[in-house]
Measured scan of single mutants.
Amino acid sequence: KHCVKCNKAITSGGITYQDQPWHADCFVCVTCSKKLAGQRFTAVEDQYYCVDCYKN
């Protein structure tokens, strides 16, 4: 599998969101770069925000 963000191979520790593979380090808030894996977040038009950034 290849990460949908960076297009590099996922060798271990990847996550899946909406049936797409991601590196955990690539699945981050677009505003603050906080890792979103296992966290609550909001998706708006294929942009992902942590709860704090989305509220602001």
Score class of each variant (00 low, 15 high):
residue 1 K to D: 03
residue 1 K to I: 02
residue 1 K to W: 02
residue 1 K to S: 03
residue 1 K to E: 04
residue 1 K to N: 14
residue 2 H to A: 08
residue 2 H to E: 06
residue 2 H to K: 13
residue 2 H to L: 09
residue 2 H to P: 03
residue 3 C to T: 01
residue 3 C to E: 04
residue 4 V to M: 03
residue 4 V to A: 05
residue 4 V to Q: 02
residue 4 V to P: 08
residue 4 V to E: 01
residue 6 C to Q: 04
residue 6 C to Y: 03
residue 6 C to P: 04
residue 6 C to F: 02
residue 6 C to K: 04
residue 6 C to M: 03
residue 7 N to R: 13
residue 7 N to F: 08
residue 7 N to E: 06
residue 7 N to G: 14
residue 8 K to W: 10
residue 8 K to L: 10
residue 8 K to F: 09
residue 8 K to C: 08
residue 9 A to L: 11
residue 9 A to D: 09
residue 9 A to Q: 13
residue 10 I to C: 06
residue 10 I to Y: 05
residue 11 T to P: 02
residue 11 T to M: 14
residue 11 T to G: 12
residue 11 T to F: 03
residue 11 T to I: 13
residue 11 T to D: 06
residue 11 T to L: 09
residue 11 T to R: 08
residue 12 S to T: 15
residue 12 S to A: 15
residue 12 S to R: 08
residue 12 S to G: 10
residue 13 G to W: 03
residue 13 G to S: 09
residue 13 G to D: 04
residue 13 G to F: 03
residue 13 G to L: 05
residue 14 G to T: 12
residue 14 G to D: 13
residue 14 G to K: 12
residue 14 G to L: 11
residue 14 G to R: 10
residue 14 G to N: 15
residue 15 I to M: 14
residue 15 I to V: 10
residue 15 I to W: 07
residue 15 I to S: 12
residue 15 I to N: 03
residue 15 I to T: 13
residue 16 T to M: 02
residue 16 T to E: 02
residue 16 T to W: 04
residue 16 T to L: 10
residue 16 T to K: 04
residue 17 Y to S: 12
residue 17 Y to P: 14
residue 17 Y to D: 07
residue 17 Y to Q: 14
residue 17 Y to V: 14
residue 17 Y to M: 11
residue 18 Q to N: 13
residue 18 Q to S: 11
residue 18 Q to A: 09
residue 19 D to T: 10
residue 19 D to P: 06
residue 19 D to E: 04
residue 19 D to C: 13
residue 19 D to W: 03
residue 19 D to N: 11
residue 19 D to M: 07
residue 20 Q to N: 07
residue 20 Q to I: 11
residue 20 Q to A: 12
residue 20 Q to H: 13
residue 20 Q to W: 05
residue 20 Q to R: 08
residue 21 P to G: 07
residue 21 P to D: 08
residue 21 P to Y: 14
residue 21 P to V: 08
residue 21 P to T: 07
residue 22 W to Y: 05
residue 22 W to T: 05
residue 22 W to V: 11
residue 22 W to N: 03
residue 22 W to S: 03
residue 22 W to K: 04
residue 22 W to R: 09
residue 23 H to A: 01
residue 23 H to S: 02
residue 23 H to D: 00
residue 23 H to I: 00
residue 24 A to M: 05
residue 24 A to Q: 03
residue 24 A to N: 12
residue 24 A to R: 15
residue 25 D to M: 04
residue 25 D to S: 11
residue 25 D to A: 08
residue 25 D to R: 10
residue 25 D to I: 04
residue 25 D to L: 08
residue 25 D to F: 04
residue 26 C to H: 02
residue 26 C to V: 00
residue 26 C to E: 01
residue 27 F to E: 02
residue 27 F to T: 04
residue 27 F to R: 05
residue 27 F to Q: 03
residue 27 F to S: 04
residue 28 V to G: 07
residue 28 V to S: 07
residue 29 C to L: 00
residue 29 C to V: 00
residue 29 C to G: 00
residue 29 C to D: 00
residue 29 C to E: 01
residue 29 C to M: 00
residue 29 C to Y: 00
residue 30 V to D: 02
residue 30 V to E: 08
residue 30 V to S: 12
residue 30 V to C: 02
residue 31 T to S: 06
residue 31 T to W: 06
residue 31 T to K: 05
residue 31 T to A: 06
residue 31 T to E: 04
residue 32 C to Y: 01
residue 32 C to D: 01
residue 33 S to A: 10
residue 33 S to V: 08
residue 33 S to R: 08
residue 33 S to L: 09
residue 34 K to L: 09
residue 34 K to I: 02
residue 34 K to N: 10
residue 34 K to M: 06
residue 35 K to Q: 12
residue 35 K to V: 06
residue 36 L to P: 04
residue 36 L to F: 11
residue 36 L to S: 03
residue 36 L to T: 03
residue 36 L to C: 02
residue 36 L to Y: 01
residue 36 L to G: 05
residue 36 L to N: 06
residue 37 A to W: 13
residue 37 A to H: 13
residue 38 G to D: 10
residue 38 G to A: 11
residue 38 G to T: 07
residue 38 G to E: 09
residue 38 G to Y: 05
residue 38 G to C: 06
residue 38 G to R: 09
residue 39 Q to Y: 07
residue 39 Q to C: 08
residue 39 Q to W: 09
residue 39 Q to S: 11
residue 39 Q to F: 06
residue 40 R to T: 13
residue 40 R to H: 13
residue 40 R to L: 06
residue 40 R to I: 00
residue 40 R to Q: 14
residue 40 R to M: 11
residue 41 F to M: 13
residue 41 F to G: 09
residue 41 F to W: 11
residue 41 F to I: 15
residue 42 T to P: 04
residue 42 T to M: 12
residue 42 T to A: 04
residue 42 T to G: 15
residue 42 T to L: 05
residue 43 A to R: 09
residue 43 A to Q: 15
residue 43 A to D: 03
residue 43 A to I: 02
residue 43 A to K: 09
residue 43 A to Y: 12
residue 44 V to A: 12
residue 44 V to D: 14
residue 44 V to F: 15
residue 44 V to C: 09
residue 44 V to I: 08
residue 44 V to M: 08
residue 44 V to H: 15
residue 45 E to Y: 05
residue 45 E to V: 03
residue 45 E to D: 15
residue 45 E to G: 10
residue 46 D to W: 04
residue 46 D to P: 02
residue 46 D to N: 03
residue 46 D to Y: 03
residue 46 D to S: 15
residue 46 D to A: 15
residue 46 D to Q: 15
residue 47 Q to K: 10
residue 47 Q to S: 06
residue 47 Q to P: 02
residue 47 Q to W: 08
residue 47 Q to M: 14
residue 47 Q to Y: 08
residue 48 Y to F: 08
residue 48 Y to V: 12
residue 48 Y to A: 11
residue 48 Y to D: 03
residue 48 Y to S: 07
residue 48 Y to N: 15
residue 48 Y to Q: 11
residue 48 Y to G: 09
residue 48 Y to I: 13
residue 50 C to W: 00
residue 50 C to T: 01
residue 50 C to E: 02
residue 50 C to I: 02
residue 50 C to D: 02
residue 50 C to Y: 00
residue 50 C to G: 01
residue 51 V to T: 12
residue 51 V to G: 07
residue 52 D to L: 05
residue 52 D to H: 14
residue 52 D to E: 10
residue 53 C to L: 00
residue 53 C to G: 00
residue 53 C to A: 00
residue 53 C to Y: 02
residue 54 Y to A: 05
residue 54 Y to F: 08
residue 54 Y to I: 01
residue 54 Y to D: 10
residue 55 K to Q: 03
residue 56 N to F: 11
residue 56 N to P: 10
residue 56 N to S: 05
residue 56 N to D: 06
